Lab assay of single mutants.
Amino acid sequence: KMTIRVKGKELARRIAKEMKDRNLKVEIHEHGDEVILEIE
Rank of each mutant, 00 (worst) to 15 (best):
Gly8Ile: 07
Glu30Ser: 07
Asn23Pro: 00
Ile28Tyr: 07
Ile39Lys: 00
Glu30Ile: 14
Glu27Phe: 14
Lys1Trp: 12
Val26Asn: 00
Met2Gln: 07
Glu34His: 12
Gly8Asn: 15
Arg5Asp: 01
Leu11Tyr: 07
Ile4Gly: 01
Gly32Phe: 06
Ile39Cys: 11
Val26Arg: 00
Met2Thr: 10
Lys1Phe: 11
Val35Trp: 15
Met2Pro: 02
Lys25Gln: 09
Ala16Phe: 10
Ile36His: 05
Glu30His: 09
Lys25His: 11
Glu18Val: 14
Glu10Lys: 11
Leu24Ile: 11
Leu24Val: 06
Glu18Lys: 13
His31Ile: 14
Leu24Phe: 14
Leu11Lys: 06
Ile39Phe: 08
Arg22Ala: 07
Leu37Glu: 00
Ala16Gln: 04
Ile28Ala: 04
Gly8His: 09
Ile15Lys: 02
Arg13Lys: 12
His31Thr: 10
Lys17Gly: 05
Leu37His: 00
Lys9Glu: 05
Val26Trp: 02
Ile36Ala: 02
Asp21Ile: 11
Ala16Arg: 03
Gly32Asp: 09
Ala16Val: 11
Asp21Pro: 02
Asp33Pro: 04
Glu27His: 12
Glu18Gln: 13
Ile15Trp: 05
Val35Arg: 02
Val6Pro: 00
Val35Ala: 04
Asp21Met: 13
Glu38Asn: 07
Lys1Asn: 06
Val35His: 05
Glu27Tyr: 14
Glu40Lys: 10
Lys1Met: 09
Lys17His: 06
Asp33Ser: 07
Leu37Cys: 01
Ala12Leu: 03
Leu11Gly: 01
Val35Pro: 01
Ile28Thr: 04
Ile4Gln: 02
Arg14His: 07
Leu11Thr: 06
Ile4Thr: 02
Arg22Gln: 07
Glu27Arg: 13
Ala12Met: 03
Arg22Ile: 05
Glu40Ile: 13
Val35Lys: 02
Asp21Gly: 11
Met19Pro: 00
Arg5Glu: 02
Lys9Asn: 06
Met19Cys: 08
Gly32Pro: 05
Leu11Trp: 05
Asn23Thr: 03
Glu10Trp: 13
Glu40Phe: 15
Ile36Gln: 03
Glu38Thr: 14
His29Gln: 08
Lys25Thr: 10
Asp21Tyr: 10
Arg5Asn: 04
Lys9His: 10
Lys1Glu: 02
Ile36Trp: 14
Ala16Glu: 06
Arg13Ile: 13
Val35Asn: 03
Asp33Ala: 06
Met2Asn: 04
Lys25Asn: 10
Glu30Asp: 10
Thr3Gln: 08
Glu34Trp: 15
Lys9Val: 12
Lys7His: 11
Gly32His: 04
Glu18Asp: 07
Ile15Gly: 00
Ile4Leu: 10
Ile36Glu: 04
Lys7Cys: 14
Lys1Thr: 08
Lys7Phe: 12
Arg14Val: 07
Lys20Asp: 03
